[in-house]
Amino acid sequence: MEDIRNAIVQAKKLKIKIHNVLEDPLHKNRIKVHVDGENKYYQLKALKRALPGVVVKGIPTVARAIINILDRTSERGRAGDNELLVEGYGLQKVMTTEGIVGEETTSNHVMEVQTVLGIEAARRKIIDEIQYTMSSHGMSIDPRHVMLLGDVMSYKGEVLGITRFGVAKMKDSVLMLASFEKTTDHLFDAAAYSKSDSIAGVSESIIMGNPANNCGTSLPALHFTAPTIGPPRKLMFESWL
């Protein structure tokens, strides 16, 4: 009962002080909550709706948890093993919960994985989630393409999306940013702040009509022996002289 009392007091949304939560002296398995101030009727109605949602034990950010029995052997375990599926947040608290194997705990929340385990784990999670989603729809992607995407989204030390905001943090080239989205905004900013562009990337080179160095069709080169060219013959009007 003391744990329930403390949970009610610590619930921030209820805003109940500890002296208003008392144990019933006549019934030891009951707790009385006193309401102060005006509009007590509406406060009691609000408490009646909110009290069942107070978390007494466990992780408040977890909505529910179910036990799943594996139907086949995979990297997650053998057929017949039990695994706990948790809906919500709180990867670090779940990993450190007594009885949970922290090394076997995974999450599909990329940003939370980055916060708890670091950027390398977030990169691995991006790759795994893309492959899992595609395979669930019966599609197969070469892992090298997905690994390249994971590298691009995480090489700055933080997870950046392939959006107008994420790409703006990834690249410094004005023309590359202008070729993606918000073309006029990037060009106006570049003109206003006198930005320079080295034209070193693929997008910039295509815009300017230059071959992209060490990339694509610019990577190979043709080597051949120069043909033997004989002495020029006289022109027709020279033979008349």
Results as ranks from 00 to 15, higher is better:
residue 166 G to W: 02
residue 165 F to T: 08
residue 164 R to E: 10
residue 160 L to C: 15
residue 94 V to P: 00
residue 97 T to L: 00
residue 94 V to G: 00
residue 104 E to K: 01
residue 143 P to G: 14
residue 153 M to Y: 01
residue 123 R to F: 09
residue 144 R to E: 15
residue 151 D to S: 09
residue 167 V to I: 05
residue 109 H to K: 06
residue 117 L to C: 11
residue 142 D to K: 03
residue 157 G to Y: 03
residue 130 I to A: 11
residue 116 V to I: 12
residue 123 R to C: 02
residue 137 H to N: 06
residue 129 E to T: 15
residue 158 E to I: 14
residue 134 M to S: 00
residue 94 V to T: 08
residue 166 G to T: 09
residue 95 M to E: 10
residue 96 T to F: 07
residue 153 M to D: 04
residue 94 V to Y: 12
residue 106 T to M: 01
residue 169 K to F: 05
residue 98 E to V: 12
residue 138 G to L: 03
residue 145 H to L: 15
residue 169 K to R: 11
residue 141 I to H: 10
residue 97 T to K: 02
residue 151 D to Q: 09
residue 156 K to S: 11
residue 149 L to H: 03
residue 132 Y to G: 05
residue 105 T to N: 04
residue 146 V to A: 03
residue 157 G to S: 08
residue 116 V to D: 08
residue 118 G to K: 07
residue 116 V to H: 13
residue 158 E to M: 10
residue 156 K to N: 13
residue 129 E to A: 06
residue 98 E to K: 03
residue 167 V to Q: 03
residue 145 H to C: 04
residue 160 L to S: 13
residue 115 T to M: 14
residue 115 T to C: 12
residue 100 I to E: 04
residue 113 V to L: 07
residue 168 A to S: 06
residue 158 E to N: 00
residue 145 H to M: 14
residue 125 K to A: 13
residue 157 G to M: 10
residue 141 I to D: 01
residue 114 Q to W: 11
residue 126 I to L: 06
residue 119 I to T: 15
residue 134 M to C: 11
residue 101 V to A: 03
residue 110 V to K: 02
residue 98 E to S: 00
residue 154 S to M: 04
residue 123 R to Y: 10
residue 115 T to N: 15
residue 145 H to T: 12
residue 139 M to C: 00
residue 165 F to A: 09
residue 148 L to T: 08
residue 125 K to W: 07
residue 114 Q to H: 12
residue 133 T to I: 13
residue 143 P to I: 11
residue 117 L to R: 12
residue 130 I to D: 06
residue 153 M to I: 09
residue 108 N to D: 15
residue 108 N to S: 15
residue 155 Y to F: 09
residue 141 I to M: 02
residue 113 V to A: 03
residue 119 I to S: 07
residue 131 Q to W: 01
residue 107 S to H: 05
residue 142 D to A: 05
residue 128 D to E: 11
residue 167 V to E: 04
residue 102 G to V: 05
residue 153 M to N: 09
residue 105 T to P: 06
residue 108 N to A: 09
residue 150 G to Q: 05
residue 112 E to A: 05
residue 159 V to P: 06
residue 143 P to S: 12
residue 109 H to P: 07
residue 163 T to R: 02
residue 108 N to L: 09
residue 126 I to Q: 01
residue 150 G to I: 02
residue 131 Q to H: 11
residue 103 E to M: 00
residue 165 F to G: 04
residue 150 G to V: 06
residue 150 G to Y: 02
residue 165 F to I: 11
residue 113 V to C: 05
residue 138 G to E: 08
residue 96 T to M: 01
residue 103 E to W: 01
residue 118 G to L: 11
residue 130 I to R: 01
residue 110 V to F: 01
residue 120 E to N: 14
residue 150 G to L: 03
residue 155 Y to K: 04
residue 136 S to R: 15
residue 166 G to K: 04
residue 144 R to V: 07
residue 101 V to D: 02
residue 97 T to W: 13
residue 167 V to T: 11
residue 96 T to R: 02
residue 155 Y to C: 14
residue 140 S to A: 04
residue 144 R to P: 03
residue 153 M to W: 05
residue 103 E to G: 10
residue 107 S to L: 00
residue 109 H to F: 12
residue 118 G to D: 14
residue 114 Q to V: 03
residue 120 E to R: 10
residue 152 V to F: 07
residue 105 T to I: 00
residue 115 T to H: 13
residue 99 G to L: 10
residue 161 G to D: 12
residue 123 R to I: 08
residue 153 M to C: 01
residue 156 K to Y: 13
residue 97 T to D: 02
residue 169 K to A: 14
residue 120 E to F: 05
residue 124 R to Y: 08
